[in-house]
Amino acid sequence: MGLRVVLLGLALMAPALPAAAQGDAAARGAALAAERNCGACHGERGISAMPGIPSLAGQQAEFIALQLVLFREGLRDVPAMQAPADGLTDQQVEDLGAYVATLPHAPPPDRAPRDASALEAGAALAGQLRCGVCHLPALTGQNQVPHIAGQREDYLAETLIAYRDSKRHGSDTQMNGVVQGLSDAQIAQIAHYVAQR
């Protein structure tokens, strides 16, 4: 599923890269990630064990590239990401995207146990707000739309609140519109549901 989506995304975006070139990009990205020590915060294999820091493993390559550009340009203003993104070239940004996309996705080691009532409420909200239209029904994302299933619950809640309060903007205002008017409690339910997927 993930692979098909990635390929489809590339076909939409730009002339698709041959598989070998993709492999080179991922290898360059791996070397750069080691050099810049991304794993210190995001986890050695891209699965974050730190509250407030998202997992990157298995994320959409285009989403990663886009966010790294936003960090580099100071448009997504996060102090912790300033140094890691500083001076990255466009090629390096794409290489890092290609690399983290190859890491196997998994939920964080400290994922909380399921809370049946929060899960049910969160699922209902996600259904009504149609998260699956853009993030796809399995919430694995496509192109610039991130893989959110199994992401850290604390990060999901924080970032959804940032969208709601207009403290985070992406390439458009879609996400701000999606969570407009939600209460903190509702966001917590959605975050729980998405983290458990």
């Binding site: 995304g9 939409l12 975006m13 730009a14 285009e62 590239a65 886009l66 550009v69 936003l70 466009d90 090629q91 940004v93 794409e94 149609r130 239209v133 853009c134 192109n143 610039q144 739309v145 390439s171 458009d172 205002t173 879609q174 701000n176 519109g177 999606v178 407009q180």
Partner: peptide
């Protein structure tokens, strides 16, 4: 905002904004 004005016939549409390229 993204679904504003969407009629019942298009409620299950999977249309979503295209990805920009920033590199």
């Amino acid at each position: 905002a993204w679904a504003q004005g969407r009629p019942a016939e298009q409620a299950t549409s999977s249309l979503a904004p295209h990805a920009p390229r920033l590199t």
